[in-house]
């Protein structure tokens, strides 16, 4: 009886100990020195394993960076902070990259967009999409059932009043929502750009007005208003070229349907340091809004009600005496 238990235990235990010893010996004997950089880089990466970089998880990226296959700023989630730390480990200077955030390109919430029918199916955008493109009468707009909200690993996107809104503080630009949005209305934009066109409807003006109060009707007023050639039109839709946009927010002011949204509370004004100004008039010539006055050799002044905060004067001032705040 005791043998029935003892022998198997002893045999399997013996086998296990034998393999344990062999493996312990082998791990010493066959130890391979791995690049310590991989572990260090892995430690500073966010560790969410979101795959936003295109490598299989953070481990995969750490390895790729260590052997130089991926750039130090390859992690879209960690942004500039992580890129800097990784660059220190790799001993190279990090390229400054502007943090990107996702933005939902739709303003058609429950008050603005009409309902086509009452949707009672599975509460998921992809499911609703199959049923005649969702319940909203605008076939381009946000379905508002929160597929992106459920998938976001960073709790950075929420459906508010029928439209998904990105929390730009939390957003890490990992791209999961962009990939999974059946309407394809989420885009990555530089976080510093405060102006956005909140419409994806490519129909003509009349058709847009019928389905949504805040749709782009392609009136092109913004194109004329923009002083920096940053506004273009394509498929009856206004589009901002963010490499040219200066956050002057004039387009948002003129937009009759308020499709173009700008955070006016964050609009800046130019201030001229009277001590340093030499009256060269360069800023005055640069200003497209006639917001700077003053003659040659005199101290210049900013007319606050005209200044749009585009910042062109501050860039051109040879004495660096203009501050945007």
């Amino acid at each position: 009886m005791i043998n029935d238990i003892l022998w198997p235990v002893a045999t399997l235990g013996g086998l296990a100990i034998f393999f344990g010893i062999v493996l312990a010996y082998a791990s010493k004997k066959f130890a391979v020195e791995t690049d310590p950089k991989v572990d260090e880089i892995r430690a500073v990466l966010p560790g969410a394993n979101c795959g936003g970089c295109g490598y299989p998880g953070c481990d995969g990226l750490a390895e790729a960076i260590a052997i130089g296959k991926a750039p130090v700023n390859a992690c879209p989630v960690g942004g500039a902070d992580v890129a800097k730390k990784v660059a220190e480990i790799m001993g190279v200077a990090a390229e400054e990259t502007e943090r990107m955030v996702a933005r939902v390109i739709c303003g058609g919430d429950c008050d603005n967009a009409k309902e086509k029918y009452e949707y009672q199916g599975i509460q998921d955008c992809k499911a609703a999409e199959i049923l005649a493109g969702g319940s909203k009468s605008c076939r381009f707009g946000c379905t508002g059932l929160g597929t992106c909200e459920r998938l976001c690993p960073f709790d950075a996107i929420h459906v508010v009043n029928g439209v998904a809104v990105v929390d730009e503080e939390k957003c890490t630009a990992c791209g999961i929502c962009i990939e999974n949005c059946p309407k394809k209305i989420i885009e990555l934009v530089p976080v510093s750009k405060l102006v956005r066109v909140l419409c994806k409807n490519t129909d003509k003006g009349k058709a847009v007005v019928e389905v949504c109060k805040v749709g782009c009707i392609a009136c092109q007023k913004c194109v004329k208003a923009c002083q920096f050639d940053a506004m273009t039109f394509e498929n009856n839709l206004a589009k901002i070229d963010y490499s040219k946009c200066t956050n002057c927010m004039v387009c948002a002011e003129v937009c009759p349907t308020k499709t173009i949204y700008a955070d006016f509370s964050r609009r800046k004004k130019a201030y001229i340091d009277q001590e340093l100004c030499i009256g060269c008039t360069i800023c005055k010539k640069q200003c497209k809004f006639d917001a700077i006055e003053g003659e040659l050799k005199e101290k210049h002044k900013v007319l606050e009600d005209k200044c749009t905060g585009c910042g062109q004067c501050a860039i051109k001032c040879p004495k660096k005496c203009i501050e945007m705040r």
Partner: peptide, 25 residues
């Protein structure tokens, strides 16, 4: 009758060992 358990043990140990050897050699 302890075949299954013994074999799993052997295979797991073997794979680990083989991995180390290949990594080195």
């Amino acid at each position: 009758y302890m075949q299954t358990i013994a074999f799993i043990l052997v295979i797991a140990g073997l794979v680990q060992f083989v991995e180390m050897v290949i990594k080195k050699t």
